[in-house]
């Protein structure tokens, strides 16, 4: 290959331009996210808070699916974070931000313990096993009123403490303020998840997914890495649980039932799990459809039906999720363009 001359930018320049374009996009995204709540009504602001929390929930779920295992217990793990954080503040007086971290650690520890029985299974058996394990945890919350509050769960959970430094005072009871808090926590978490995937750890997760025996043969301890994925995913699900508990102020076993898990599955599958942004796309698009379109049409009770239909249709007709639409449209566009160019040449 001839060396690029001064007139044409070298590969280094191209990379720099792409990098700047990427940074610009991130800046723009955050600017949009910062403006967003001021364009929303109060109840929409509340939905936005939950949406941000759900973004973390579904993104953490994707990390687990990188190793090829699909769990049905992820929402229960989120619940472990929520219950633990709530109980730590209520019973032991642990201050809230710290309790969230401890709650997430508790969720991670639960995953570490569960991985011993669960990672003896694979595929379908893991799915069912994780369902059983999750149900057991949920039934324990339901059965033991002390300390879990039984079927009614825990109420009046301490809110995130207000910040009041004289010149700056933030009341986190306001959805706008909690939105920004959640946005910061979730962005940081997503950054960590992204870093993990881009590192050798992520490469190893993918390797286990595609050929676990080959990975094993070059020294990858697949059990350890599956456990690692499960523990990391659970930690961040626990963070999401903590954010949820101290925002809503109440948790109960029904909130973390398999019905809720179905929504996470729908988001992940409709969005697609091949890319980092796929599941985020899924949760954002479906929440917008759900909260704006369905609510406007007064179809609230039909919500599960529509979700069910979307799930079936996307499994049937969009098996790679919304994330696959962009590249697919792009190739179609290019083919159309080159096709019409060829047509023009032929005409000429």
């Amino acid at each position: 290959m001839p060396e690029p001359t001064g007139a044409t930018p070298g590969p280094g320049t191209g990379r720099r331009i792409r990098r700047i374009a990427w940074q610009l996009r991130v800046v723009f995204l955050f600017a949009a996210l910062a403006v967003l709540p001021y364009l929303l009504s109060y109840s929409q602001q509340e939905i936005a808070v939950l949406l941000v929390i759900n973004v973390l929930l579904v993104s953490s779920y994707r990390l687990l699916t990188l190793t090829g295992e699909w769990s049905l217990g992820h929402v229960v793990i989120m619940g472990v974070g929520a219950y633990a954080s709530a109980l730590l503040t209520k019973r032991l007086g642990v201050p809230v931000p710290l309790s969230m971290l401890l709650g997430a650690s508790m969720a991670a520890a639960t995953a570490a313990i569960l991985s011993f029985p669960l990672f003896r299974m694979k595929g379908f058996y893991f799915l069912i096993g994780s369902f059983a394990a999750g149900e057991i945890i949920r039934l324990i919350w339901k059965r033991f009123t002390d300390p879990f509050g039984g079927p009614k769960g825990l109420k009046r959970i301490d809110p995130f403490p207000d910040i009041d430094t004289g010149f700056l005072s933030i009341d986190f009871y306001e959805p706008v303020n909690y939105y920004f808090l959640a946005l910061i926590v979730v962005s940081a978490s997503l950054f960590v998840l992204y870093r993990i995937e881009r590192s050798r750890i992520g490469l190893t997760f993918h390797a286990i997914h595609w050929q676990d025996r080959l990975a094993e043969s070059v020294g990858v301890d697949t059990f350890r890495y599956r456990t690692l994925a499960f523990v990391i995913a659970s930690f961040f699900a626990g963070i999401a649980g903590g954010l949820y508990a101290h925002y809503v102020g109440a948790v109960n076993p029904t909130r973390f039932s398999v019905d809720q898990m179905v929504y996470v599955l729908v988001w992940a599958i409709v969005g697609g799990t091949a890319t980092f942004y796929g599941p985020i796309l899924g949760v954002v698009v479906l929440t917008v459809i759900n909260e704006i379109v369905l609510r406007a049409l007064g179809l609230d009770t039909a919500r599960p039906l529509i979700y069910g239909a979307i799930l079936i249709l996307s499994v049937l007709y969009l098996p790679n999720g919304l994330e696959s639409l962009g590249p697919r449209l792009r190739t179609r566009w290019q083919r159309w363009r080159s096709g019409s160019a060829a047509g023009r040449r032929e005409a000429a």
């Binding site: 050798r200 490469l203 190893t204 595609w210 050929q211 025996r213 080959l214 070059v218 990858v220």
Partner: peptide, 17 residues
């Protein structure tokens, strides 16, 4: 039997685990 979805280099990178 390879990581068919990876690039050639990434296959060997996994080998360097």
């Amino acid at each position: 039997t390879l990581f068919q979805e990876f690039s050639v280099l990434d296959n060997v990178r996994v080998g360097r685990h």
